[in-house]
Design a protein around this nucleic acid. Sequence first.
DNA 1: CACTGTATCTAGTCGTTGACAAGTTAGACG
DNA 2: CGTCTAACTTGTCAACGACTAGATACAGTG
Lengths: 218, 218
Amino acid sequence: MAKRSYHHGDLRRALLDATAEAIGEAGPAALSLRDLARRAGVSHAAPMHHFGDKAGLLTAFAAEGFDKLSAELSAGSGEFLEAGVAYVRFALAHRAHFEVMFSPGLYRAEDADLAAARQRARRALYEGLAAMRARPDPARPDPARPDPARPDPARPDPGRTVGGSAGEWDETRAAGLAAWSVAHGFATLWLSGALPGTSAAPEDAARLVFARLRDGVG
Amino acid sequence: MAKRSYHHGDLRRALLDATAEAIGEAGPAALSLRDLARRAGVSHAAPMHHFGDKAGLLTAFAAEGFDKLSAELSAGSGEFLEAGVAYVRFALAHRAHFEVMFSPGLYRAEDADLAAARQRARRALYEGLAAMRARPDPARPDPARPDPARPDPARPDPGRTVGGSAGEWDETRAAGLAAWSVAHGFATLWLSGALPGTSAAPEDAARLVFARLRDGVG
DNA sequence: CACTGTATCTAGTCGTTGACAAGTTAGACG
DNA sequence: CGTCTAACTTGTCAACGACTAGATACAGTG
């Protein structure tokens, strides 16, 4: 606590917080361990004791991000559209974490703690996405099916395997991946400033985009 | 051409090529101007003459990427699903360009040449995506509409404005953004290695994912 | 309280990098 | 042939990541 003492108290925590702050100001590329040390008021080599090297710091930072994401997804309603919005909200609110999490070149992707955190986040994510098939939005009328006897070839039954590898590319999985792709793509494009002239609130825009995925654009 | 002469011949081109190579090996974060100079066989300060600084090099590199993307999108069939696949194919085939293009912190986003190239790419992209409404895939049976008199409230007519700002968030735009988000998100997730155990070919997987968007997942 | 072990942090150093300044060379043009 | 200019080199500096060795504070143990 007391910054003047030889021991910082919780330097590890302070460095992770400083990391988020520094990345938020100038992006991950401009991140400097020595700058973090200055922010925390310690010597330039202090960070290395806790994280080994820069990649170690970012590995811990990414793991923290995956845990934050898990928490925010689990706190949601579990409804499909809201799960996607929560994903986008996380990316915007924790931009620094989000950017590092999906830049594996910056950290050690094979780290055990990180892999576990990522696994937890993926589980939480797919729980929210699985809801899109099991329980459709009750406010939305059931889409008319053409004919049960002659099913639409473009919409096979869930569970039907499409790809070559057995069981890998069933329709549920493809739908989940599509949902994740929309959420991730929208968040990434928004963060990168690639969307021109979008003055609307990102969450509202995201909701419209997710509705397109739910109902189809064809 | 002759590497032994004082003048390189086309150092600018050689440096851009070396940039793609270096980023392909170790990622954008590890890129070093001095390493590029070594690859091109010139002195360590030679690159700065052509690009000013590191951001200048990456600005030119990103602009080159947007032009490549425009070319590949324009060469496609113009059909919705194939446009998305082309986008993914570009991201995987020109990974270095793609990563830099959507990391605005690495270059000068306000550069005039770059902005023009990005604009061209966006135009080419939206041309491919606009096809999804104008001419649906002829191989796909028309989806049954519930009742023309009582239209599905979740699928308003194209052109209807949803957001607050007038004309900004009509349905066509939302659908285009959804398509771009899917393509971009899928490519990004694939490149970041976030998709576990996907041994299938990325283009085939992308096709399945785009089909989910076209038909809806609800 | 004194002793000791250990985690935490400091201080110093090395090779590398991005950026800048000043000088040198090659090629074009009159 | 002379001059001008773009292209490139050499030299330098501060900052960075990484490493080493040493100093300091804290927790037990007796």
